[in-house]
């Protein structure tokens, strides 16, 4: 009897202790970026530096991933709590296996893929790539969309000589004229321009979104475990990130400076230019119509359609709305 009483009081004491620590200590989240630090990843750093997360009672640890699929895997494995990654990578993963990760907010409502070409390139439109040599990063997600994009524009993918290489080699190869163009993200324009400048050239681009590639790109992802255990935390984190993103769009330089505070070897000018290059993906006709961060069902369906076609998956292999959780976006 006495023992039982003792146990009860101990339990009560424990509860008390737990509730007080919860009230005073900040929630911790491990936030995983989808790539090495660069200007376009600046929003999360701005949120931390501006104290947006602290105001929500959140302490953030930022981890660097190596690609969207790694973010998805790490979130599913519980090695990170939230992060940013391409929605197509999440849809693909969920269509193929059980992955307890959801997209809670969209960042890019347009796809960032493009071709970077030297100024005055004979490639004036997508159709001109026939017979040309293009460089691409070995593990780029763009590689799977590329043949589908070509086919949907009546171009034979086999007519293009696609050379795969380390992402770090793409710029030098383009500058040296070893390739006629490279497959990249829009955010890479500033650093490519820098290298091309050294070769006395400027860059031109062909956006894939101009040739029918549409859908959501970079999104905020969260592990389902965290969503279930602490939905409030996900909501607060999403809110803090939205504020940071909005401020970054308004003031890319401030965002770049916040990034430099965390990653001292960063070049502020370049980082600001990179973020600026990504703004059209965030603020555009789509976001004007639906609001930043939302997932509009028709565009979501299109995103999935591109993934299904590029991965040769059945269209009914996944209901794309099951991959998103829209509770956390403020209306």
């Amino acid at each position: 009897m006495a023992l039982r009483l003792f146990k009860h009081s101990l339990f009560a004491l424990g509860l008390l202790a737990a509730s007080t620590t919860a009230a005073f200590a900040a929630d911790k989240i491990r936030w995983m970026n989808d790539w090495l630090p660069s200007g376009d990843k600046a929003a999360i750093y701005l949120g931390v530096e501006q104290g947006f997360f602290a105001e929500e009672g959140i302490e953030v640890e930022i981890i660097n991933g190596r690609g969207s699929s790694e973010v998805v895997t790490r979130l599913a494995a519980g090695a990170a709590d939230m992060g940013t990654g391409g929605l197509p990578a999440l849809l693909q993963a969920k269509a193929e296996q059980t992955i307890n990760v959801s997209a809670v907010m969209s960042i890019y409502s347009m796809q960032p893929d493009l071709l970077i070409l030297p100024e005055g390139s004979p490639i004036r439109s997508l159709a001109d790539v026939e017979g040309k040599t293009l460089g691409t990063a070995t593990f780029s997600a763009s590689n799977v969309i590329w043949p589908i994009l070509l086919r949907s524009n009546d171009i034979d993918p086999d007519s293009v000589n696609l050379v795969r290489m380390d992402p770090g080699a793409l710029g030098p190869m383009l500058a040296a004229g070893r390739v006629d163009g490279t497959i990249n993200w829009i955010t890479k324009i500033p650093s490519f321009a820098e290298v091309m400048q050294e070769a006395g050239k400027d860059v031109e681009v062909i956006l894939w979104s101009d040739y029918g590639l549409d859908g959501y790109g970079l999104s905020v992802l969260a592990s389902d475990r965290l969503i279930q255990r602490n939905p409030d935390l996900v909501e607060r984190a999403t809110r803090a990130y939205s504020r940071a993103l909005a401020l970054a769009v308004e003031n890319p330089r401030l965002a770049a400076e916040a990034l430099k505070a965390h990653v001292p070897e960063m070049d502020v000018e370049l980082a600001a230019a990179e973020f600026e290059a990504s703004i059209p993906l965030i603020v555009n006709d789509i976001s004007d119509a639906n609001g930043i961060g939302t997932f509009e069902p028709e565009l979501l369906a299109k995103t999935w359609e591109w993934v299904a076609r590029s991965q040769e998956l059945a269209l009914d292999a996944l209901d794309p709305t099951s991959a998103i959780d829209t509770r956390f976006i403020a209306d």
Partner: peptide, 24 residues
């Protein structure tokens, strides 16, 4: 190269991602 926020391996990957070859 695979996972890090610091270190010379990270720094080389970081530098080449910005095409800063001399730095790498």
């Amino acid at each position: 190269f695979v996972a890090a926020e610091k270190g010379l391996g990270f720094f080389i990957a970081f530098s080449t991602s910005f095409l800063r070859i001399p730095q790498a």
